[in-house]
Amino acid sequence: MWKNREQMPILETKHITKHFDGVYAVNKLSINFEAGKITGIIGPNGSGKSTLINTLTGMIPIDSGEMIVAGAERLQRVKAHEVASYGMTRTFQDVRLFEQMPVIDNILVVLTERSIWKALFEKHGALHLEKAEEVLKKVGLWDKRDELAKNLSYGQRKLLEIARVLAMIHCGVGDINIIFLDEPFAGLFPEMIKIVTGVMKELRDQGKAVILIEHNMDLIRELSDHIYVLDSGELLAEGKPGDVLARKDVIEAYLGE
């Protein structure tokens, strides 16, 4: 079957499986993510959403299955430090910041050179600072730039993770076009939610594939072009949010928890 390059998924997973001591957290999952779209992943707690992202981004080793990046690169095993070069970046559900570092350094560290030598003899300090200012202003944390990350409020911490993702897009590693957001709205105040939805729409309009794990169905409806529903590590349903969220089995999976 001949596919137009525009319609080709930017990331496909084939039979991805990951188990923890007999529990199949992700079981033979084959799903696609498309560029310029926001793809929602929903499912009850423990259904394997975070585990899926963790395997795709090399944070935990995969048992079996493979992923195909941009229709070309087939990967069985991906190491954490390589995922950026395949164009992927992410946030963490359990916010992982560089706690005892200033906010600005949390951003600068992902902007600067990856090679040791170039990092020692940094040539683009001013440029990186400019980019850091831009992304921190976007999430409203520029005023907090000299605070240690650990002193931020919970919502600010989540926003800093979003800013770090934006910084990754500016860094020289890979062409970041696949962005995983693991429950980015959890615990945010309404005005912060507005910032994050704004960023997500912007990323989508820039042609990035944005993958959103979220429990708030209003946000899922508002943002997603396509959703996947996971249950016990397996795919329960997929499709347009309006259709899928009306399905009986989907509602039951959620009510059942």
Partner: peptide
């Protein structure tokens, strides 16, 4: 310093 703070996270951002 970022390795000290969270080695897993900084490697996910492309550092060996």
């Amino acid at each position: 310093k970022s390795i000290r703070e969270d080695e897993g996270a900084i490697s996910a951002f492309g550092y060996r």
